[in-house]
């Protein structure tokens, strides 16, 4: 497919998705919004992991920081949602820099461990600093924003809003990756030594990738808080980071649409399996998580590069 044709197909797909909100039940629309929100965060993680080659187990911490910034600023200080988005993005960017600067010295699996530790610390602060974060009770009644005078209170309106936001951040990501600066990431991941000899400053680039990934997590968090209208610490425990990691790998890390596919599977598949009412699938209500776990193992053994690597596998087979 030519790039132009691909863009048109993509635009049609997005429009179809937006229109589908007319035909779906409210709870299904809500779940679609939930997917969009998580995709923002996993897209950021994909930049860190898939393009810059750094395994992070702390994306839920940035997601949580974004969500709490929104919840605190909108409920306690009455700040507008629109102001919160850049605040959260910038805050997570700098927290990402602060964490990444020492952590990236150690690379590989150690970065994974350091980010995991950071995630648990963030969780503890959310849980214990009651005056600021509401402690274990969290913060409820987080307001949804207005678009000019149009209230985004309904599930459908908020879904369109989130989808539009997702498309915008995805385009930004695309532009970033297409820039010479973004190409350096890939060069880095594929052959760090060669990249270094070409004059790419490895540390600076990975650090930036990590911080931008964190900012994406933060923006996702802001939309999450608006969607669920409630934040509590346990949502942002490191198990959520593992779930996000899962989504990226499952879809295919280092592929632009990898996190999209992966997140849709991780969020929607359990719901589909669970709510299926056909008798053949009834037993799934009890066993769906077992099936999900086993499917994950089988998929990894079969396609270690994620679902989107299926094309490569075919190509390899054909060549062989």
């Amino acid at each position: 497919m030519s790039p132009a044709a691909r863009n048109i197909a993509l635009a049609i797909a997005i429009l179809a998705l937006a229109t589908s909100a007319f035909f779906l039940q409210r709870s299904q629309v809500y779940l679609l919004s939930l997917c969009c929100v998580y995709v923002m965060a996993t897209m950021g993680l994909n930049l860190t992991m898939g393009y810059a080659g750094q395994m992070s187990l702390g994306q839920a911490a940035f997601f949580g920081i974004g969500a709490y910034i929104d919840a605190i600023l909108t409920t306690k200080l009455g700040v507008s949602f629109w102001v919160v988005i850049p605040i959260a993005a910038v805050a997570c960017f700098f927290v990402g820099l602060a964490l990444g600067f020492p952590a990236l010295r150690v690379q590989h699996h150690y970065l994974a461990f350091a980010t995991l530790g950071f995630n648990v610390l963030v969780y503890l602060v959310m849980r214990n600093e009651e005056a600021l974060t509401g402690g274990t009770f969290g913060i409820s009644n987080v307001p949804r924003p207005y678009l000019f005078t149009w209230s985004l209170d309904s599930e459908r309106a908020y879904f369109w809003f989130t989808l539009a936001a997702l498309v915008i951040v995805a385009i930004l990501m695309r532009l970033l990756l297409r820039s010479p600066w973004g190409r350096a990431f890939a060069a880095l991941r594929d052959n760090p030594i060669r990249a270094e000899s070409l004059g790419i400053n490895i540390t600076a680039y990975t650090l930036l990738a990590f911080a931008i990934g964190a900012a994406y997590g933060g923006v996702g968090g802001v939309f999450y808080a608006g969607l669920v209208q409630y934040v509590e610490p346990s949502t942002f425990y490191f198990t959520t980071s593992l779930m996000m990691l899962l989504a990226v790998i499952l879809g295919g890390s280092g592929r632009f649409f990898g996190p999209v596919i992966g997140t849709v599977i991780v969020i929607l598949l359990p719901e589909v399996l669970r709510s299926s009412s056909s008798p053949a699938l009834q037993f799934m209500q009890k066993w769906y998580l077992v099936a999900f776990g086993v499917a994950l193992v089988v998929l990894m053994v079969w396609l270690p590069g994620g679902l989107l690597s299926i094309g490569d596998r075919r190509a390899r087979k054909a060549a062989a």
Partner: peptide, 20 residues
């Protein structure tokens, strides 16, 4: 009965579904 998985966001979705 539906399983909220002890997660607040899922509970919200299930409540909408029940109502609808």
């Amino acid at each position: 009965a539906s399983d909220t998985q002890s997660q607040a966001p899922i509970a919200k979705a299930l409540a909408q579904k029940a109502v609808d």
